[in-house]
Design a binder for these strands. Structure first.
Length: 873
DNA sequence: CCAATCACG
DNA sequence: ACGTACGTGATTGGA
């Protein structure tokens, strides 16, 4: 039997110490983290140095304790816990849980008493004990087998109080610490002691007489003022001693044997640290993760492919050099079954007929991760993938869309699997990035295939528990193939058109720049908000309406309010607008054109928290449309075949229709059933005027309210968007919710659901967890509440268009059409089509999209076409 | 590498 | 009272 080493931590005291020792840090949500951070640093160090076998963190429970019965002013006059600290306690508890350390608190007792009781129990059993606190009171617990660690100055700096050390420092035994407090008192706990007796006098008295009682027995040996004070305050001294005495027989319900410590839950810890934004700790963790031993994996590198190795169900992984799977180097393939793992080098893959026919055989089930990437990359080698039956990345994303899914190692870590390295560890990063020797590379690839096979059952189990098979097998998995095809097709871009526009814009910008510089009376970088701020608000003396964290805000909404005040403002706004078009949409887009004259975006399918797609390299979901100058960029997006047309079909008000369906609001449903202009209808209801009397301003206001509703309304947000007072905005909202009681009901219900379940769901049972919904932090809680209202709406709309895309791809194939789906922009689909298919598309596309799902309101799709994307209006 | 800005739904 | 609209990506300047 290994000797026990028991660590008893005073949670409250350590949190206080850390809080006051460190500057206020905050994470990205504005939650303070300094106390938790300090506590963590201390804990890390202690764990490493002491390697305890048993641990507990004791906390004070509630405000009053048995000590208040003795002395009602106990701990009186103490500053209330600062809110910046109290908001950290929930995180502290989470952290401790992640370490898998027991927490304990006991009504009516303080942490001291829990520690005192446990240390006595341990002592009697002959175990080694370390007590850790920021409070010197605890030193009274020191004994031959118990050392008390008291933090000093910072939080990781520790003073170790053994019996000997106390003797040396004070000339007292540990028990006499209580007497010391009895005489001198303790200001922080409002323990009075004997007025006029400080540490010096108390120590002298105790060295002579041993204890408080001893002092009074020999009271006649004192004289003068001191004697007077002692006599006068005898009762106070005894009460003080009692207060300072740690209870060592508290009625605790735990036993030391229940406090075993066997290391943290790494995944949980990573999650908590992430939440708290403890970056340095996370990096350190990566470093240590590298050193953890992986279980040995036996695999076979194939120089030729015997058809016999291909089975009906296999995990398959295609290793790529980076995320840009449309162009990057392909490094090899691994295959895994229950008993076998193979690695096939890329040149062997390319030359293997057996592999090719297995890959395209739909009856052979493939288990992959990021099947879209692999499908698109194989496509480049002339290889077609069929029969994808599992996609690890997508599965994990459905289980929890709030996590990031970039590296396979990180994905499977969520499921407790650590036998695969992170790409960065294999390839390095930055300038040092390179492909390692075959030995290392092959093992890495092999482990990925093995990992997919190994983790699949766990992911599937989760999906089944959450009733997400439908979402998984019938939506995301088939969508991956559809998206991969769209990306591989690409979109034709008219390079000359862009270059010509760029030239024109560049000249115009140079002119505006000159203009701005002369208006400012000096040359400066207009693109630098810092320099611009100095020019506008210091040199020109314009009023500062808004500030950012780092200085003056020069954002467009601020500048617009200053437009009348100086000629330079409108020039700057113009410069910004055109500069954006040039840098992002002309120069940026030109850089993304591939050799085939097309751009091949990547739709990220496992990224957003709501279920939407995102688009990168280039982003084709934010091509300008709202202002004409930018919209002209769309003239450069053209069909890839001569004479073909661009086609656009967008859902009209899909989010509000989803809201109507989910809220069952009669008025809203009725409006859509009659196909009313929803903003006019809203204005009519909110302003209590007939439809025909709604003015354009009223409609504009109503439109903003409708947006607000979808986003999870707040009066402040609405007031910003409409440029009105908060009060007026609040009134609008109030009127809206009275007019649409079903919506109010839905919003409340959504928050309730989140509070009860910890998550909200969409039409197709997509989940989003909202851990902050019950937070005591107003900001966090409010954000979670708005998210609870918004995610089901935005997410359900995303579900619907995804379903429409799958149906659309099926229909185009079924009907043997040449038309190609190119892009999805959240509520619209873009196609290129031969002119002879146009008539058919006019009915087919809206029909498919409008019937992707059945709601209790109709879905409506607007259809448009033209020679370029610009002309689809 | 982050903050600010601005493009989209 | 708190301070915020929901979801994205690319570019720029400046530590």
């Amino acid at each position: 039997m290994v000797a026990k080493k028991i660590l008893l931590l005073d949670g409250n005291s350590l949190a206080y110490r850390a809080f006051f020792a460190l500057p206020l840090l905050t994470n990205e949500h504005g939650v303070h983290t300094n106390a938790v951070y300090g506590f963590t640093m201390m804990l890390q160090r202690i764990l490493e140095e002491e390697k305890p076998t048993h641990m507990v963190v004791a906390f004070d429970a509630g405000k009053t304790t048995f000590r208040h019965e003795t002395f009602s002013e106990y701990k009186g006059g103490r500053q209330k816990t600062p809110p910046e600290l109290s908001e950290q306690f929930p995180y502290l508890r989470k952290l401790i849980d992640a370490y898998r350390i027991k927490r304990y608190e006991l009504p009516n007792y303080e942490a001291d008493d829990i520690i005192g009781t446990l240390s006595l129990e341990a002592e009697q059993a002959g175990d080694e004990v370390i007590v850790i606190s920021g409070d010197k009171d605890l030193t009274q617990l020191a004994s031959p087998s118990t050392t008390v660690y008291i933090t000093r100055k910072g939080i990781t700096d520790i003073e170790k109080y053994t019996v000997g050390h106390i003797q040396e420092k004070y000339g007292l035994s540990p028990e006499q610490i209580i007497d010391l407090k009895g005489l001198m008192g303790d200001a922080s706990d409002n323990i009075p002691g004997v007025p006029g007796v400080g540490e010096k006098t108390a120590l002298k008295l105790l060295t002579a007489h041993g204890s408080v009682e001893g002092v009074y027995e020999a009271i006649d040996q004192q004289k003068g003022k001191l004697k007077e004070k002692l006599v006068e305050n005898e009762e106070l001294a005894l009460i003080s001693k009692k207060l300072a005495t740690i209870e060592r027989n508290a009625p605790i319900e735990i036993k030391i044997d229940e406090l075993t410590y066997s290391g943290p839950d790494q995944d949980e810890l990573i999650q908590v640290w992430n939440e708290l934004a403890f970056k340095s700790l996370l990096e350190k963790m990566d470093y240590t993760a590298e050193e953890t031993e992986k279980e040995e994996l036996v695999f076979e590198v194939l120089q030729e492919t015997d058809p016999a190795i291909f089975e009906d169900e296999m995990a398959i992984h295609l290793e790529m050099y980076d995320e840009q799977y449309h162009t990057c180097d392909l490094l090899g393939v691994s295959l895994a079954t229950a008993s076998k793992t193979y690695v096939i080098p890329m040149d062997v893959v390319k030359g293997s007929e057996a592999f090719k026919s297995w890959l395209m055989d739909e009856t052979k089930k493939k288990y992959m991760s990021d099947s879209k990437a692999a499908t698109a990359a194989f496509y480049r080698c002339g290889l077609e993938v069929a029969g994808v039956d599992f996609d690890l990345m997508l599965g994990a994303y459905i289980v929890n869309p709030s996590l990031t899914y970039t590296d396979l190692a990180n994905i499977v870590q969520e499921y407790g699997y650590t036998d695969v390295s992170q790409n960065e560890q294999i390839y390095g990063k930055g300038a040092k990035k390179s492909v390692p020797d075959d030995g290392i590379l092959h093992e890495h690839i092999a482990r990925k295939g093995r990992t997919i096979w190994a983790v699949r059952p766990t992911v599937l189990k989760k999906l089944e528990e959450n009733e997400q098979f439908e979402l998984y097998y019938n939506l995301e998995l088939p969508l991956a193939t559809v998206l991969g095809t769209m990306e591989s097709f690409g979109v034709q871009v008219d390079k000359e058109q862009l270059v010509a526009m760029g030239k024109e814009l560049g000249e115009k910008l140079a002119e505006i720049e000159k203009n701005i510089h002369s208006l400012a009376g000096e040359k400066f970088n207009i693109n630098s908000p810092k320099q611009l701020g100095v020019v506008l608000f210091e040199n020109l003396g314009l009023p500062v309406l808004k500030k950012t964290k780092t200085g003056y805000s020069t954002a467009a909404d601020v500048l617009e309010k200053l437009e009348g005040q100086h000629e330079i403002i409108s020039q700057i706004l113009m410069y910004r607008q055109l500069g954006k078009i040039l840098s992002t949409y002309i120069e940026g887009l030109l850089k993304e054109i591939h050799e085939d004259g097309k751009v091949h975006t990547r739709f990220q399918q496992a990224l957003t928290t709501t279920g939407r797609l995102s688009s990168i390299n280039p982003n084709l979901q934010n091509i300008p449309v709202r202002v004409e100058e930018g919209r002209k960029i769309r003239k450069a997006f053209v069909p890839s075949e001569p004479e073909w047309l661009m086609v656009a079909a967008d859902y009209s008000q899909i989010e509000l229709r989803v809201l109507a369906d989910m809220s069952k609001d009669e008025s809203l449903i009725d409006a859509f059933k009659h196909d009313l202009d929803i903003h006019t209808k809203t204005a009519s209801d909110v302003f209590h005027v007939p439809l025909e009397e709604v003015t354009s301003d009223m409609r504009r206001a109503a439109k903003a309210v409708n947006f607000g509703i979808v986003y999870g309304i707040s009066d402040y947000g609405l007031s910003q968007s409409l440029n009105i007072t908060r009060k007026a905005a609040a009134e609008f909202i109030d009127n809206y919710l009275k007019s649409f009681p079903g919506v109010k009901n839905y919003m409340d219900g959504s928050i309730q659901t989140a509070k009860q379940n910890g998550f909200v769901t969409t039409l197709m049972k997509r989940r989003r967890y909202l851990p902050d919904i019950n937070s005591s932090n107003f900001n966090l809680r409010s954000f979670a509440e708005r998210t609870a209202m918004n995610t089901p709406i935005q997410g359900s709309a995303a579900d619907i268009i995804k379903k429409a895309m799958i149906d659309m791809a099926d229909a185009l194939e079924q009907e043997n059409m040449q038309t190609r789906m190119l892009l999805q922009v959240h509520d619209e689909l873009i196609f290129e089509a031969p002119p002879e298919e146009l008539e058919k598309l006019k009915t087919l596309v809206p029909q498919i999209m409008e019937n992707a799902v059945q709601l209790n309101v109709p879905l409506k799709v607007d259809f448009a076409f033209g020679d370029t994307w610009y002309d689809t209006k």
